[in-house]
Amino acid sequence: MSGVRRRYGVMTDRWGWQPTAWEQGGLPTWRYGSAPAGLVTRRQMRALGLAPGGAVPVAQVVWRHRRHEVRAQLWDRSELVPKRTASPAQLVALGKAMAARRWCPSCSRDVGYCIPTSFGQCAECEFPEVMSDAA
């Protein structure tokens, strides 16, 4: 980002004066590890069992990875809600759907893995000469 001059220091409603932050894309921005406590990334949010629930990102952090600038949006932890859990009926339906993906239409058996949609059948039916050599 040569030629770009950043003015550091932002006055925010939530955290007051932040001398190490700057405004980028309408959000207060910090370098990696410099953001105020209580803000979480999407991965941290999911690890805590939380979801946005309509909340919008309130800030972001940036860092360099190789030659690229990487950004992660930050949410205020107090605005997040618990993740929804699947009902027993939904779990049964998901189990049936996954079982159907393992069923080969050519040889009519459960092959124990999800059949690739590009094949449309199990590996034994798609490549019989290769599979017979391997056995």
Rank of each mutant, 00 (worst) to 15 (best):
G3A: 07
R6S: 05
R14Y: 04
W15R: 05
W15V: 04
W17C: 00
Q18Y: 00
W22I: 02
W22K: 01
W22T: 02
E23R: 12
E23H: 03
Q24K: 12
G25H: 06
L27G: 11
L27D: 10
P28Y: 02
P28V: 06
W30I: 05
Y32T: 03
G33F: 06
A35V: 00
A35H: 07
L39S: 06
V40A: 15
T41E: 13
R43P: 00
R43H: 06
M45T: 06
R46T: 10
A47P: 00
A55R: 06
A59R: 08
A59P: 03
Q60R: 15
V61Y: 00
V62G: 01
R67V: 03
H68W: 11
H68A: 15
V70R: 13
W75Q: 09
W75L: 12
W75E: 07
D76E: 12
E79C: 11
R84M: 08
R84L: 14
T85E: 15
P88Y: 07
V92T: 07
V92S: 01
G95K: 10
K96V: 10
A97K: 15
A100P: 04
W103N: 08
S106E: 12
D110H: 10
G112E: 01
Y113C: 03
C114H: 08
C114L: 00
C114T: 01
C114Q: 11
P116E: 05
T117F: 00
E124V: 14
P128V: 12
P128M: 03
V130C: 02
V130K: 10
V130S: 09
M131K: 05
D133C: 03
D133R: 15
A134I: 12
A134D: 08
A135W: 12
